[in-house]
Design a binder for these strands. Structure first.
Lengths: 224, 224
DNA sequence: CTCTTTTGTTAAAATTTTGTTAAATTTTTG
DNA sequence: CAAAAATTTAACAAAATTTTAACAAAAGAG
C-alpha cells in the first residue's frame, strides 16, 4: 500500500485530502508543520508528499528543496497544494522539482487523479528493458546479452539493472552505492570499481558500454 | 530531437507555444483542426501532443479518446491546454488519460516545464542549458558543441559549466577559482589561465566565445 | 617606440583517479 | 558443519588529469 504524507496546517483541508486518498486505498499520514514533516520523513519512508506552502513554521518550499537535494529522498514525488497561485510560485515550485502544483481551491477528485498518475509513472512495472544488446528481464531476474543469459552475481545484477533503467545517466559512485546497498558508507571503498571491472569482463566485447566518466562516476552507454 | 504536435486553432497562441518549445530544443508541428491532427498523426509519430479542446471541427476530447484507445498511439503523452477550466472538464480530461491539464491563460514557461517533466519520465534529459552553439547536459555530464560531445576533463567541464550558467558575466580569476576549487589559494597560480587556453583549444573555431577581459578575468560570450 | 604588465602557450613533473588482480573475509548453500 | 559462492579489501599498475614553470606574445602606459 502506498504511503502518502500530507503536510498541511489546516485541519479541515488535511482531513478532506486524507479521506479522499484513504478511500482510494492509500495510507495517509498527517503533519501540520515543517518540523513535524522533517522528523516524520527521517524515520519513515513515504511514497509521495502532499505539501502545502504556507505553514506555521515556514515556507513549504524549504521542505521541497531539502528533499530534492537529499540523496536519500530526492526521488520522492512532491505535489504542492497551495493558495498561492501566482505564476512565479508555480514556476518556482515546478522548477525545484515538484511533480505537480495544484492551486486551491481544487477538487479532491482532481488531486487524487493527479497523484495516481504520478505514482503510476514511478513504478512503471515494465518487466523488460532493452538497452543496445542487453535485455533486462525482471521477472526472470536475468539479463541477456544478445539472447544469452549473463551469469551475474546478485550485486552485479543490481548494478547493471540500475544502469539499464537509467541508460546514459551518469552515476557518481555514491549515488550508485546508495542504489545498490541502500546505506551510506562512511569510509572510502573501492568495491564498486571492482564490480565495474568484473561486469565489463562479463560483457566481453561490449564491456565498453559501461563508460567511466572521469571525476564523476560511470554510466551505461546506449548505442545509436 | 523530441517532436511535439500542437493542435490549436488560434494562430497566435499556437505560434507562441511553438516558439517557446522550439527555443528549448523541441521540434514542433502545428495543425489547427481535429481532421488535420488525425492525418498528421497517422503519417508521423510524435513524442507528445499539446491539445486545445475547442476546435473548429469538434471537441479535442475526441482526439484524446482516439489516441488512448488506439494501440499504436496509446502511450503518446497528451497535454490539454484549454480555456475550459471547469472542474468537470479537468477531471474528464485527466481521467481519459491526459498527462496534464493546463487552463488558459497560462504561462509559457510553466507549460514548457510541465511538458519537460512529462517527457523526462520517458527519459528526456531535463537539465539542459544552451548558450550559442554550446549545450550543457548535466544529467549526462556532457557539454555538446554543435551536437558533438566535447571531450573535457572534470575541471574543464566545471569551468565551462560555471560559464554557461552565467553567460556574459565577467568572472575574476579568484571568483572563478572559488567556484571551481572551493578553496582560496594563498599563493598566486596560473592554473586557470592554462585551463582557459585548453578550453579555447577544444572549442576550436568557437574558442573566442571565451573572452579575456584584460585586468579582470574572463567571460563567456553569448552570440546574438 | 620602449618598457612593463598581463595573458597565451606548452611540455614535463607531480598528483590523482581508475583498472586489475589475488587473496582475505563474509555469506550462502548443500 | 563444510564447501562453494560472493563480497570486500588491499596493493600495485596504468592512465588521465592537474599543476608548475618557463618562455612567447600581446596590450597598455608613458
Amino acid at each position: 500500500m502506498k504511503k502518502i504524507l500530507i503536510v498541511e496546517d489546516d485541519k479541515d483541508i488535511a482531513n478532506l485530502i486524507s479521506e479522499a486518498l484513504t478511500s482510494q486505498g492509500f495510507k495517509t499520514y498527517l503533519v501540520n508543520s515543517l518540523a513535524q514533516a522533517y522528523s516524520f520523513l527521517i524515520q519513515s519512508l513515504v511514497d509521495l508528499v502532499v505539501l502545502d506552502l504556507i505553514l506555521p513554521d515556514g515556507d513549504g518550499i524549504e521542505l521541497l528543496k531539502y528533499l530534492r537535494f537529499s540523496s536519500k529522498f530526492s526521488n520522492i514525488p512532491v505535489v504542492i497544494v497551495s493558495a498561492r497561485g501566482a505564476e512565479l510560485d508555480r514556476v518556482l515550485g515546478l522548477e525545484l522539482g515538484a511533480d505537480d502544483y495544484v492551486v486551491k481551491p481544487f477538487s479532491l477528485r482532481e488531486l487524487v487523479i493527479r497523484i495516481k498518475k504520478i505514482l503510476k509513472n514511478k513504478d512503471f512495472p515494465l518487466s523488460q528493458v532493452r538497452v543496445g544488446p542487453l535485455l533486462l528481464d525482471k521477472e526472470k531476474k536475468t539479463i541477456f546479452l544478445e539472447d544469452n543469459p549473463l551469469n551475474l552475481t546478485p550485486t552485479e545484477y543490481k548494478i547493471l539493472e540500475v544502469f539499464m533503467e537509467n541508460p546514459e545517466k551518469v552515476f557518481s559512485r555514491d549515488e550508485l552505492s546508495n542504489h545498490i546497498w541502500a546505506l551510506e558508507r562512511e569510509y572510502y571503498s573501492r568495491v564498486l570499481d571492482a564490480y565495474i571491472c568484473r561486469l565489463r569482463d562479463k560483457l566481453g566485447e561490449y564491456g565498453e558500454l559501461i563508460e567511466t566518466v572521469r571525476g564523476f562516476g560511470y554510466r551505461l552507454k546506449k548505442p545509436a
